[in-house]
């Protein structure tokens, strides 16, 4: 029942993107661990690497969605993003218990969860899509890595302790909440990270689908969405970590976003049929 209607013509092969995205994301998450090597009490200046990890994973994720949805799953594009993060958040939260091994554990756990979900989708629900299991495994891993990256960006660390340690909370006076609720998990900033990633992962393919889809344009859009999500998480991190460290993240995210946004406009102009300003509908034969 499923017919592959679009093939990836030319461009970078999917497996190359997979390897690059996975390695870059893991390396960037581990670079946030440098924060623990700073002298005690100094601000987490390396938190911004968490955001870059999220960007790398989203870049890979947009291509995974393209890979999966080229089997005629048109309206399933946004749902694929949600499912990616829904399975990823379980793996990510459990993995934070494992201290320094957390990112690796997250990848393994997410792969297991993804394999189960993919098996159910293909064999129990009978979708019978050849790349289904592999794609869902990839997407669960991406969801876990993006959430872990954004959490590391907002707190400076990826262990459970850093996720439940709150800001010093003037908030408690305004919002009548207990003290631990000023943290990423207690304040549910993780929900914001979930939505920031869930929309950013599906938007590049959802926005670029069509007969004139081009790989480079979609991947640049993926980077743009990633930097935009990173920028928002960085702004929220000002409330949680030292302002100086948070501002480094804000500046890096903003520069990355403005560069990729500009580049996306250029690529859209390159691919568009015409680039008109205040012009009427062109006459088409037969209508």
């Amino acid at each position: 029942m499923t017919v592959k209607i679009e093939v990836i013509q030319g461009g970078v092969p999917h497996n190359t993107i997979l390897v690059k995205g996975l390695v870059a994301s893991l390396v960037f998450i581990y670079l946030t661990y440098l924060n623990t090597l700073l002298p005690a009490g100094s601000p987490p200046y390396f938190a911004f690497f968490g955001g870059l990890a999220a960007v790398a994973a989203l870049w890979w994720g947009s291509h995974t969605i393209k890979h999966l949805c080229s089997y005629g799953i048109g309206t399933g594009v946004p749902s694929a993003g949600m499912m990616s993060f829904g399975s990823g958040v379980i793996a990510m939260l459990l993995a934070t218990q494992f201290g320094v091994g957390a990112p690796i554990v997250a990848v393994v756990l997410a792969a297991v969860i993804g394999a189960i979900l993919g098996f159910v989708a293909n064999n129990v629900l009978g979708m019978k899509i050849p790349v289904m299991i592999q794609s869902i495994i990839e997407m669960a891993i991406i969801g876990a890595l993006v959430l872990m990256g954004l959490a590391a960006l907002m707190t400076g660390g990826f262990t459970f302790q850093s996720l439940v340690t709150g800001a010093s909370l003037p908030l408690a006076g305004i919002l009548n909440v207990p003290n631990y609720m000023g943290s990423v998990i207690g304040g549910c900033l993780l929900a914001v990270a979930f939505m920031l990633g869930g929309i950013a992962i599906q938007h590049p393919f959802n926005a670029c689908l069509g007969p004139n889809w081009t790989q480079d344009r979609m991947l640049i859009l993926a980077l743009e969405c990633g930097f935009l999500s990173m920028l928002m998480a960085a702004i929220m991190s000002i409330g949680l970590i030292d302002t100086g460290a948070a501002l480094i993240s804000v500046i890096i995210a903003f520069l990355g976003w403005i560069y990729t946004y500009d580049l996306f406009f250029k690529l859209a102009k390159r691919d568009a049929a015409a680039w008109l300003d205040s012009k009427p509908i062109p006459e088409v034969e037969g209508h």
Partner: peptide
């Protein structure tokens, strides 16, 4: 903006122009 530009550019085959206005 990115949604409009992306969708419209991908329809180039059918002659749908991007209207900046």
């Amino acid at each position: 903006t990115t949604a409009y530009l992306g969708r419209t550019a991908s329809l180039a085959k059918f002659g749908q122009p991007v209207y900046i206005d």
